[in-house]
């Protein structure tokens, strides 16, 4: 078996939700550079289109295709999957990656004692119910393909570990003081449960299901936060979105043909100590 074929995604159709986001934009580029046709699904169609155009230009071919999806809307997901299947006939790879930001940051970062049920339900909906819906719709397509497929779902370091709340002192992001709300940990832990469940559920259909757990990705946090966070990591730095690409291509491709139900933790060693 030759490695180029082992990791090659040539001829494969990959769907990445949140494809224009922080991690998604590195992933779609990585998948495209390894040969896949990539559907960049995002709620922000303009951002997805700009990103697809940029990478297509670099590659000098139309490999990335933007599409709008609202992952909190069942019909929007169904319609996206229909359009993809109509145009590309199949979906080999799903990176179930999108997670929603709250429209109300004050409510999202509220302390646990005062957390509103509405906000809890909203994030449950955007961060885990959405994954169920996308996995259900795409899984339906994959289970009818003789070739099965590979599903990768994005969890988070806070799905497997508790935050050290001291690192948020003096931190600033999105123009405000931040923290990690309990709902985020809860939803991301749910992603791991869903991943394992689907791994055995669809094993006989040739669908492998794994998750990826990124450590904190540097994306515009203030210097104090970056310092606080990096100090907790054996490798001494926050993650870059590109750090996820190797693990994603591994899980997407035949290079991981005997791997299912696993959680690949790309955290610079944070969870090792």
């Amino acid at each position: 078996m030759d490695l180029k074929n082992l990791f090659s995604l040539k001829g494969e159709v990959a769907l990445v939700t949140g494809g224009a986001g922080i991690i998604g934009s590195a992933v779609v580029e990585g998948l495209a550079y390894n040969g896949a046709t990539v559907i960049v699904a995002d709620i922000d169609l303009k951002r997805a289109t700009d990103l697809a155009n940029k990478i297509n230009e670099q590659l000098n071919e139309t490999t990335l295709h933007p599409i709008k999806v609202d992952i909190t809307d069942e019909d929007s997901i169904k319609s996206m999957v229909n359009i993809i299947v109509k145009k590309f006939k199949k979906i080999d790879i799903l990176h179930n990656n999108a997670a929603g930001k709250s429209n109300d940051l004050n409510a999202f970062f509220e302390k646990f004692e005062k957390y509103s049920l509405d906000q809890w339900n909203e994030i449950m909906n955007t961060d885990i119910t959405s994954m169920f819906l996308v996995a259900r719709e795409v899984g339906n397509v994959m289970s009818q393909q003789s070739t099965g497929g590979s599903i990768i779902q994005t969890s988070s370091i806070y799905g497997i570990m508790a935050p050290d709340n001291r690192i948020y002192e003096g931190s600033n992001y999105l123009g405000r003081q931040i923290n990690t709300p309990a709902i985020y940990s809860t939803a991301k832990a749910g992603v791991i449960g869903l991943t394992k469940y689907l791994a055995t559920y669809w094993a006989d259909k040739g669908i492998r299901v794994n998750s990826i757990t990124p450590g904190g990705v540097e994306s515009g946090q203030n210097e104090q936060f970056i310092k606080n966070y990096s100090n907790r990591v054996p490798l001494g730095r926050m993650a870059k979105a590109e750090d996820m690409v190797g693990a994603i291509v591994y899980l997407a491709s035949n290079a991981s043909s005997y791997v299912t139900g696993q959680n690949l933790i790309v955290d610079g060693g944070l969870s090792a100590w």
Partner: peptide, 11 residues
């Protein structure tokens, strides 16, 4: 390809 991975056990 795994420059940000350490201390992991892949099954």
């Amino acid at each position: 390809a795994s420059s940000y991975m350490t201390g992991q056990n892949i099954c």
